[in-house]
Amino acid sequence: MPTAKDLQSLTDQEVVGLARAGKEAAYRELLRRYERPVFSLIYRMVRDRELAEDLAQESFVKVLNALDSYRPEYKFSSWIFKIANNAAIDQLRRRELVTLSLDGAPDARTADEVEATALQAVDQTESPLEELESRELGKSIEQAIARLRPEYRACILLRHVEGRSYEEIAEALDLPLGTVKTYIHRARHELRESLGPLRG
C-alpha cells in the first residue's frame, strides 16, 4: 500500500488510478493537491467565502464520484478546473454577481453581508510595512480582477495566479487556444489600465 509520501511523488494520473482502485489515501491526495487552487479560483470568481466553499465542495464531489469517466489523455487539473469554473460561472449567471469590490459585494446591505463577500487572505508572513504595502497593492489588484468579465477573470486567474499553461486553460475552459491568448491579453490590458492611475 503506498504511503502519503509515496503518493506525493506520483503524477495526477497515477493517483487517479489508485483512487479508481478504491484507495482512500489517493482521494485525499487529490484533495490535498487541488483544494487551495480550486477554492482560490472559485472564491475569486464569486467573492463569497461560504458560497465558494459550497461550490468547491460540489466540484470535488462531482469530480471524485466520476473518476471512472476521467480520460487520462486530458490533464486532471484541466478537468477539475473546468468543473470548478463552470460551477462559478453558473453561480455568477444565477446571481448576476459580475462586478464586486474587495470590501464586499455592492448589493451587500448588512455588515454580515459585507463581511461574507469580502476577500480574506490566509498567507500573511511579511513585515507590517511590507504587509501594508502588499495588502494595498493586493487589494487594488483584487478589485481590478473583480471588475473583469468572468471569462477574462477565469483566464487571468488560471494563467497568472495558478500558473497554468495556455493549453491547459483552453482545455479547462473549453475555449480555442487563440481565444484564451486573446482573453489573457485583453485582461492584462484592462488590469494595467485599472492599476495605472494607482501607481502614478
Binding site: 483544494e35 487551495r36 466553499e53 498567507d123 495566479v161 488590469l191
Partner: peptide, 15 residues
C-alpha cells in the same frame, strides 16, 4: 504582482 497574490484555503473541515 498577480503571481504574488495569496492563495486561499477552505475551512479545516473541507476535506
Amino acid at each position: 504582482e498577480l503571481s504574488r497574490l495569496p492563495s486561499f484555503a477552505p475551512s479545516r473541515g473541507f476535506p
